[in-house]
């Protein structure tokens, strides 16, 4: 077999994959109960090109490029399909701050808090109420307390999935069974990251490319 024969067989496999891929994909998505196409993608296909340039891109250039990519790059498609099947990507769930038992300080009374949290301003730019401009939010918070609930102070050092460590403080509702309810935050400080030893600079092509992208990406 010559190189041309190999190439034709390779492209032939690509054409077969191109033909069987859409029905298989639809079947698998249907079995998983997923929509076969994301709505944004569908709306893109449903849009009607108006100018000659758009028609050329949408009706000729885009399909030509897509089909060529599948025919020439089908081993990658197979690789990614197997990888996705064997190691399905878990959906990312962002960590949400919650007050834990270890964050609790002391039990406090509403009247004591309200006396302590009155705000004064010599220019009169704040209402003379507990928590000043946040008084409505405070009243709403206290309104969630049921019989037997107590208020406790809390202070939590917390680290989100990204960004710097944080200090969060405030008041939290503690239920009679010691379950922790909603909280009212009064202080939220972004702390400095712990010092890390500096990494040696590597002036590689990818570093320079990343630096250029970081500066120019919009």
């Amino acid at each position: 077999m010559s190189w041309l024969d190999f190439f034709l067989v390779y492209c032939g496999i690509g054409i077969v994959i191109l033909l069987v891929m859409p029905p298989i994909n639809r079947y698998l998505k249907k079995r998983k109960g997923e929509d076969s196409e994301p709505s944004s993608l569908r709306s893109l296909f449903e849009s009607k090109p108006t100018t000659l340039g758009d028609k050329f891109i949408e009706w000729f250039l885009a399909p030509f490029v897509a089909i060529s990519l599948v025919i020439l790059g089908w081993p990658f498609l197979i690789y990614f399909a197997i990888k996705e099947h064997l190691y399905p990507v878990q959906p990312y769930v962002e960590k949400v701050f919650q007050v834990e038992t270890e964050h609790l300080g002391n039990p406090v009374e509403v009247v004591d808090i309200e006396a302590k949290e009155k705000v004064f301003d010599p220019l009169g730019a704040v209402p003379d109420l507990p928590f000043g401009h946040l008084n409505a939010a405070w009243r709403e918070f206290v309104g969630q307390m049921a019989d037997g609930d107590r208020l406790w102070t809390f202070s939590a050092n917390w680290q989100s999935d990204w960004g710097n460590p944080e200090l969060r403080e405030g008041y939290v509702i503690v239920k009679p069974d010691l379950g922790i309810g909603t909280f009212f935050m009064t202080r939220w400080i972004i702390l400095d990251k712990p010092a890390q030893p500096p990494e040696p600079e590597k002036p590689t092509l990818s570093n320079r490319l990343f630096s250029w992208l970081k500066k120019n990406a919009d």
């Binding site: 301003d121 220019l123 730019a125 401009h133 939220w188």
Partner: peptide, 16 residues
């Protein structure tokens, strides 16, 4: 945001 304070608001909530 602050209907009764349209010109000047003391940012008493901010620590940082």
């Amino acid at each position: 945001i602050f209907p009764d304070y349209p010109d000047r608001v003391f940012a008493h909530w901010y620590s940082g």
